[in-house]
């Protein structure tokens, strides 16, 4: 714990007070309509998108960037229901949380609203993926695992989150890089990191893939073997675990999350939203939230973000076709 409990508590009490003072100081930071912002989390409460949306809500209110921020959930179909709703919105002061999983979900659910139909605002954060194995696995590193895996992919069950999500995408990309047919991968989907973690701890599967937040503590305590992380740089949460690139596999995946806005908004309105997101990103509260949640800072805004989205869409589509999840 970097903060002592007392000073932390003091911060908790002081932050909103200071935020309130900043608000009273008179200068309205954002143009009028953005003082009331809505953030849609297109998933059920408690998931990654919901958590990120609520952290964003808290940071924006604490740092006085907007007075009233409301988070609401539109559940279903990997976020595609929420995306469809956003496609019909005409409110400029609305952000929808989304991420890599939605890129795949648009294809697997054959959604009529595509990501290109709404307005990209910014990519915000990413979660590093961690590939781990049960403690009694007959290998110690990712190369050893891939050797076992390549020998008999069907007899090498790999646990992860729901079908078509980041974990399965990473499994497919790694198979591809290791010369294994992605269609042969014996991927066992669980509903969320929790359940797959228990399958790992119970030694029921050969390896598992999830966010560092899910497996990291177990790797740190020695209950799981950390094999590799999916990003270009090592993760602070498990600094001893090498990256895939270090280990000789040219795969880089981040479970990134970003925000989108309604279709057909004016350039000015879009700039206002981008400015709000950048201001949020620059606040101390945001830095603290990144630290607390173990998120990587991946800010990318506007057209750069749109380009990144297009590249991810192509890459995800290709691998999902190879795995056999979509036609």
């Amino acid at each position: 714990m970097p903060l002592s409990r007392r000073s932390f508590l003091a911060g908790v009490v002081a932050a909103p007070v200071l935020g309130g003072l900043a608000g009273c100081a008179g200068t309205v930071v954002q143009p009028g309509d953005l003082s009331r912002l809505r953030i849609m989390a297109p998933a059920s409460p408690g998931g990654g998108w919901d958590t990120t949306a609520r952290v964003m809500q808290r940071v924006i209110q604490q740092s006085g960037l907007a007075r009233n921020v409301q988070v609401f959930n539109v559940e279903g179909a990997g976020g595609v229901i929420g995306l469809g709703q956003l496609g019909r919105e005409d409110d400029d002061a609305l952000l929808m949380m989304m991420g890599l999983v939605m890129v795949g979900a648009v294809d697997t659910n054959d959604s009529s609203t595509r990501l290109t139909d709404v307005t990209p605002i910014a990519r915000l954060i990413g979660e590093t993926e961690l590939i781990a194995a049960p403690p009694d696995a007959p290998f110690d590193d990712i190369a050893g695992f891939v050797e076992v895996w390549a020998a008999d992919p069907a007899a090498t069950p790999i646990a992860g989150g729901s079908a078509g999500g980041t974990d399965q995408i990473l499994a497919g990309l790694l198979a591809q890089a290791a010369g294994i047919d992605p269609a042969q991968v014996n991927y066992i989907p669980y509903s969320g990191g929790g359940e797959s973690l228990s399958a790992m701890l119970g030694g029921q599967v050969t390896a598992g893939i999830s966010g560092t937040a899910d497996y990291g503590p177990q790797v740190a305590s020695g209950d799981l073997k950390g094999l590799a992380v999916s990003t270009a740089e090592r993760s602070d949460q498990v600094p001893d675990v090498p990256t895939l690139i270090e280990s000789g596999f040219d795969v880089e995946v981040s479970n990134w999350r970003g925000v989108m806005a309604r279709p057909g908004m004016t350039a000015g309105a879009r700039e206002d939203l981008i400015a709000l997101v950048v201001d949020t990103h620059d606040s101390d509260e945001w830095a603290e939230a990144l630290e607390n949640n173990g998120w990587d800072d991946l800010l990318l805004t506007g057209d750069d973000y749109a380009e990144f989205l297009a590249a991810e869409e192509a890459r995800v589509r290709e691998i999902l076709v190879q795995i056999g999840l979509i036609q």
């Binding site: 059920s44 409460p45 408690g46 929790g194 503590p217």
Partner: peptide, 25 residues
Amino acid sequence: LGLPTSATAAILLAAFQGYGIQPGP
């Protein structure tokens, strides 16, 4: 284990994280 197995447990976990408390073993 820091392992949420219901929706409410997941939110409680998020609340822990909001306080800067790392859940886990």
